[in-house]
Nucleic acid binder design. Structure first.
Lengths: 217, 217, 217, 217
DNA sequence: CAATAAGCGAGACGGTACGTCGTGTCTTCTT
DNA sequence: AAGAAGACACGACGTACCGTCTCGCTTATTG
């Protein structure tokens, strides 16, 4: 999933051969060092998004400040690229597929509450949301909350179920995913781990709305 | 809903007489001027949360910078108090009550999409979420997204419906509110106004899970 | 040597009986506490003149800040009063009087160089000069360097000598005192203790000019 | 008379090649602009040493505040460099050389009293002495009152006279200069212009001590 | 192979805002 | 009325980053 960190939108060289430009080419090592440094500062050193500074990234990456400003518009841009380049990611537990959607989602939520509500994951959510909420319109154009914060696996499970005919007709798997995941994310952002009761109630209510009437949820 | 802007955790005078402290008492005028100034800068002048500075608040409020730092820990603290003190608030359209919950919520969502998705409302959502996502743990302890970003009217409508027995037994009105409102808020935060189709699908799915099976949603 | 620390020049009550003014009289205890505190901070705690603050004086004196501002114009005023009231003073070694002026002054200078060039005395000179150099015109009107920095004993010795006819006719004892003391003070201010050679040369040269031609200096 | 404004004690490159350091080199333009600005504020705008602020210097010099703090420890350091770099100096009237030292010095003192005792010169003396008296030990190490406040021309006149054999053997020209100049400076600092009588008496007394006995001073 | 470009680490630059400290004034209760 | 306490408007402090701008050096392509 290559991404142009390019300020100027670059517009890839259409000439098939990808004719190399004159002058010294961009250093891949520096690019990676920057993204890695940013990711580590947020992830390992657990600093907050606004305690993160471009200078600190540059210093940790052993890179000149200008090298960052040459390729990214600001720190939000760097963080987003770090996310996109998978140096920094939300890793939610996998969603099982036993054939029984309701049981699978409930079991997944159980695992979320028991194992995934770590300080690291919660602060990561905060960083991402902060990066998005503070980023410029331009930055947001490159990023969808739904693509980053959502559990792609959860969405995939709903899509599979839909193809099996296990969802009520007309129900959008994306919508179902959001209805479960987004309230969960906002709770993590605002109050940390949610109440188990609340979470189970959420899953039940949404699933009841998403499954066919015949299924005895 | 009075709130102690106090750094040191309020510490109410338990002694019944509430004996006045020595020295000049805190100026209520200054307190209000600060909150008002912060609110106006975000609300009227439409500046972003991180373009907001303590110095600018102080200058607009005609108050010494120290007076702000004496009573609030940082700008996020000021903004939160401004919200809590109702100088700054999200005002969503009212939820009608015709007796038919499904129709009411659908109509409310219609109004949201048509009238409420203004630049102002969306940027206000961003300010609030940024204030929470970037704030310290201490700040978050004083604020719940669920209390601020949520539409209290929507929640009230579900509570009324529950008391009338119009909700499926065991369904928590708070959960239902979140399942509709939170995905909407995240969309506003990330991509601005959501697709109408998506929004209607969300309402339908959640309501189907929340209403009694007998109701023909 | 009583001094009115009064801002308004006060103008003593002319009515012979010294009729007490209405209201609570000025607290002598506070006045002394302030001067003592200022003196100690400079003298004992060895802080520099501009590290000295009115707030620190007030706090050390257990006195309200206003009590200082009610009676003194600023910290320079306080320091000057502390000097005048003898809480803070330059104590130079005594000048012997053996009848032989030249021998006495040389011996005094010897003692100065050997015993008096302590860190405390030098920093005290600096405080005084700073207080004078930075003080307003009003402050300076109340203070003469010649009265404070000069060794009154040295001056007295020259005056005695003059009355005995031991000075060349027409020579002003004050001038002689200055010609020896002021270069010494400036050296202390700028470079700390002066070179002994330099000091002896100074004494010799000035004395030769001040004593009658007959005396074989 | 080049001076390193360097915080870290100059550290000249001993390596003959004087290999340039990495990074952008210090801007000479900024260095000069700062010293010039400080000098003008004291000299032209006639503000007092403690009304002088680093921010004002920076703003007048059109320089970032940090650029000042990068190279100087505080405002006293800046003022001292301004002095050393000759942007700010005491300019006393020239000392004539007619061959008759006594007449020359008396005539010079006459000119001093008549023409040089301007408000500007006196306040400049105050600035310089304040800068020294309040400065840290480090600052003082770089500056000698004797080098700055003294009239170099007066000293030169005495040195010339010494080489001609016009001074009494063993008399140090530096000492004579101080014995005349320092009392004058302290008077200017403390009370402004001195009495003419006092000044003439000073000159007579010191010269009598400095000239050979044969000369009929 | 030299010339020419452009990227690189380093670090100074003009700025803005920070959070703290001190000033001198004001306002409250206490003595 | 004066005193101790302490909040107030103001403004400078010295620091941290911002985003820009040279420097000398390195690494490519091109003539």
């Amino acid at each position: 999933m290559a991404v142009m960190g390019d300020k100027s939108g670059s517009g890839s060289c259409v000439a098939g051969v990808a004719r190399r430009k004159r002058g010294r080419p961009r250093s891949e090592a520096s690019r990676v060092a920057v993204l890695k440094a940013a990711a580590e500062l947020l992830d390992v050193d657990q600093i907050s998004f606004d305690a993160l500074t471009v200078e600190r990234i540059a210093s940790r990456a052993k890179v000149g400040k200008q090298t960052i400003y040459r390729w990214w518009p600001n720190k939000a841009g760097v963080v987003l690229d770090a996310i996109i380049d998978d140096h920094l990611s939300l890793t939610f537990p996998p969603v099982p597929d036993s054939g029984d959607l309701a049981a699978d989602v409930r079991s997944w939520m159980e695992t979320m509450l028991d194992e995934a509500m770590t300080e690291e994951l919660i602060s990561m959510v905060r960083h991402l949301v902060a990066a998005i909420a503070m980023g410029s319109a331009e930055v947001q154009a490159r990023l969808r909350v739904s693509e980053l914060c959502e559990n792609p696996q959860l969405r995939a499970r709903f899509l599979v179920e839909e193809s099996r005919g296990g969802l009520r007709p007309g129900v959008d798997p994306m919508v179902v995913t959001s209805a479960i995941m987004d309230p969960l994310l906002l709770r993590m952002l605002a109050i940390g781990a949610p109440e188990p009761e609340w979470a189970h109630d959420l899953v039940d209510t949404v699933l009841r709305g998403a499954l066919p009437a015949t299924s005895g949820v």
